[in-house]
Design a binder for these strands. Structure first.
Lengths: 350, 350
DNA sequence: AGAGCGTTGGAGAGCGCTCTCCAAGCGTGC
DNA sequence: GCACGCTTGGAGAGCGCTCTCCAACGCTCT
C-alpha cells in the first residue's frame, strides 16, 4: 500500500539528468544552453536523458545566477485615472488600440518563449507598485504604452537602469527608445483625399491636444489643407473616445452647418461623428465625407465602413519589443527610434 | 578620476542589510516576512537599515527556496484559430469581454503585489509552449478563459498539478474549480421583460451552440417563453461577433417579418441586430424590442442603448482569481464553483 | 537559589543552476 | 620524440534567499 516514494515526485534537476547520462552537471548545462563544443555522441546521450527524465530547467535557479528574469513587462501607463465601481476597472481595454499593441507584443515575444507581464500604472500609487515590482527583478525590461504624454514612468524606469521602449515619442524629450508612426504624413493623406474628393469645407476632430500624437495629426492636417489653399480648418477637441467624437461633431455642425468633410484623429471619434451626422440627417459620404485614423476594428464596424489612415500598430508593437530585447541584450546600445509610415485605406465613408 | 567602484552599484542583498543593522541575515529575513517575534527595537533598526540601503528582495532567490513563483498566468485559450496577416494577431481583444476579465483579474491581483503573465493558447503548438512555460515554474497557477468548451488545456494543467480556475463551466465535467453566471436565469429575465412589454412574437439570436453558455442562454430563454405561453421561439445561430448578429437578424427577418422582439445571446450580436433592423426600417424599440446579454461597453455604445442582462464579468474574474490563490495556498482544497446571478439592465432598446 | 521553560537571535545548510577554472586527452610541428 | 596548443569534460564555488536547528538569555516556580 504505502511505498517510500514522496507524494509529489519532485521534478528532476540537472543533477538527475547528469546521473542518468553519466556525465557532469556542467556538461548537461552546456548541452542545454548550446555553449561550447560538446562531443555529438555525448550530446545525444544527454538529450536522451533529458527526454527520459522529463527534465525542465528551473527558471528561478537560472535567473538567480544569470541575473536575467527571462520576462518583460507590458506596462500600460496613465491609463484612465478615474475608476468605475470596484477596486480597479480599467477602461483601457475598451479601446481596440490597446488590444492591437498587446497582440503585436505577444506575437513577437511568443516565438521566443517569453510572455509579457501585464501591468497598469494609472496613478501614483500604481506607479510606485509597478516600480517596486520591477525592482525585484521580475522583468528584464518594459515596453510601455502611455496615454499621457507627460507620464513620469519612462524617466523613472530608465533612471533605475531598466531597459524600456515606448510606443510613441515622449513629450519631454528624454533619452529613451521608441517607435512611432508618422502622424503628420498620415494626416496629410487624409487631407489630400478629402480635397481630391472635392470637399471644400473640411473640419477636424482632434485628440487631446496634450498628447503629441494628437498635435501632430492636427498640424499635419492643417498644413496640408493650407497647402491645398484652405488656410482655415475648423476644429473641435475630443479625447479619443466615441462619445467625445459625437459631441465634437455636434459642436462643429452647430458652428459650420455647411461643412462637407471631417477628419477625426482616431476611428472611435470618427464613429461617434458618424452617429451625430446621421442623427442630423447628413448622409455619409454624400453630404459629408468622414476620414478616421488608425484602421482599427471600429473602422470596419462602422456604417458606412470608415475610410481611414492606417496606423500599423501591431507591427510597431512588434518592433518596439524587438528594440527592447536588443537593449536587454546589450545595455550600452544607443537609444533609437523607429518611425513607421501611415497609409490611406479607402472604404465608403469618404 | 577612476575610482574602484564598480560601474553598476550592485543592488544590496540581505547580507548588506544585516551588516548595516548589526544583526544576522536570518533576523532581517524574519522582519521582512513577519515571521516569529523579533524584538521591536531590533525590528525598527532593521527597517531603517532596509530603507537606508534601498534593499529590495530578489525574487529569483526567494522563488528558488520557497518554490513559489509569486506570479499567476492569465491564459486565453482557444482564442481564434485563424490569424490575420503576420505572426500572431489575436482578435480576442476586439471583444470587450476579454478586457473585462483582464480588468477583474488585475484588480484582484494588484493589491496583493502580483501581476499576471499574459498567455495565449489558440492552437496545439501554442498550447504546448504554454505548458512548457508553466512547467518551468513561471507561475504558481493559472486563471483560464477558454472560448472553446472542449478545450483540453484545463485537463492538461490540472494533470500536471498546476492549480487552475476556469471562467465558465467546462463542457466535459472535469474536476476543476470555476466561476460562472446563471445563464438560464439571465435569459429568463430577458424573456420576462419582453413578455411584460407586450411582445408576442419574440425570436432569439444564439451564440455558437457548441458553447455551453450559449446553450444555457437559449434553453433558458425558450423555457421561460414556453412558461409564458409561447412554445415556439424562432432562433438563428451566431458566433458572438457583431457581423454574425447582423446576418442572423437578416435571416430571422426574412422568415418572420412580423417579429416584435429579439433576445441576442450577447451585446455584440444585439448591436449587429440593431444595424440590420435599422437597415430594414424597423424602429427600436417601437417596432422591435431588442435585449442583449453581458452589459458590455457595446451596450451603451449602441443606438439606442441596449437593454441587456448584466453579466458581472469583472466580479467573476476577481472571484476566479481569489479561488486560484486559495488553491495555490492550499493545494488540497476541494474544487469549488461559484455561480453569479445575472440581472436585467433596462435601457432604451426594450 | 537552582531547575525548567519560553523567547529570541545566529549559524549554516541548502534550493538548482551557471560558469570559471583546471585537468586530461589528443594532435601537431620542430 | 617530446613540448606545446587546442579541445573537451569535471569540480566546485557561489547567486540571494529561507528555514531548521541550536545557543543564549531571562523568566517563573519550587
Amino acid at each position: 500500500m504505502s511505498d517510500g516514494r514522496p507524494p509529489v515526485p519532485a521534478s528532476p534537476t540537472l543533477e538527475d539528468v547528469a546521473r542518468a547520462a553519466g556525465v557532469s552537471r556542467a556538461t548537461v548545462s552546456r548541452v542545454i544552453n548550446g555553449i561550447r563544443n560538446v562531443d555529438p555522441a555525448i550530446q545525444e546521450t544527454v538529450r536522451r536523458a533529458i527526454a527520459e527524465t522529463g527534465y525542465v530547467p528551473n527558471r528561478a535557479a537560472r535567473s538567480l545566477v544569470t541575473r536575467r528574469a527571462g520576462a518583460v513587462a507590458l506596462v500600460v501607463s496613465g491609463a484612465d485615472g478615474e475608476s468605475r465601481e470596484g477596486p480597479f476597472h480599467s477602461k483601457v481595454f475598451a479601446d481596440p488600440f490597446f488590444g492591437r499593441v498587446a497582440s503585436g507584443v505577444v506575437g513577437f515575444l511568443r516565438p521566443r518563449g517569453v510572455h509579457p507581464i501585464l501591468m497598469f500604472a494609472e496613478d501614483d500609487e500604481a506607479r510606485a507598485q509597478c516600480i517596486a515590482y520591477l525592482r525585484q527583478g521580475n522583468a528584464d525590461g518594459a515596453v510601455l504604452v502611455s496615454t499621457n504624454a507627460t507620464d513620469p514612468l519612462p524617466g523613472l524606469l530608465t533612471g533605475m537602469g531598466l531597459p524600456a521602449v515606448l510606443f510613441a515619442r515622449p513629450s519631454p524629450p528624454i533619452p529613451i527608445s521608441y517607435v512611432d508612426v508618422d502622424h503628420r504624413t498620415g494626416a496629410r493623406l487624409a487631407a489630400d483625399h478629402l480635397v481630391a474628393a472635392g470637399r471644400r469645407r473640411s473640419a477636424t476632430i482632434t485628440g487631446p491636444l496634450a498628447v503629441p500624437a494628437a498635435q501632430d495629426r492636427l498640424s499635419g492636417f492643417r498644413d496640408a489643407m493650407a497647402a491645398h489653399g484652405h488656410p482655415y480648418v475648423p476644429c473641435a477637441e475630443g479625447d479619443f473616445t466615441q462619445d467625445s467624437g459625437e459631441h465634437a461633431m455636434e459642436r462643429l455642425l452647430a458652428e459650420h452647418p455647411d461643412l462637407d468633410g471631417v477628419f477625426a484623429a482616431n476611428d472611435l471619434m470618427a464613429k461617434g461623428a458618424l452617429l451625430t451626422l446621421r442623427h442630423h440627417g447628413r448622409r455619409v459620404p454624400e453630404d459629408v465625407a468622414v476620414v478616421g485614423f488608425d484602421d482599427s476594428s471600429a473602422a470596419t464596424a462602422s456604417r458606412p465602413p470608415l475610410t481611414t489612415v492606417r496606423h500599423p500598430v501591431e507591427d510597431m508593437a512588434a518592433e518596439m519589443t524587438r528594440l527592447l530585447l536588443e537593449h536587454v541584450e546589450d545595455p550600452h546600445r544607443p537609444v533609437t527610434s523607429v518611425i513607421f509610415e501611415a497609409s490611406l485605406v479607402v472604404r465608403e465613408s469618404a
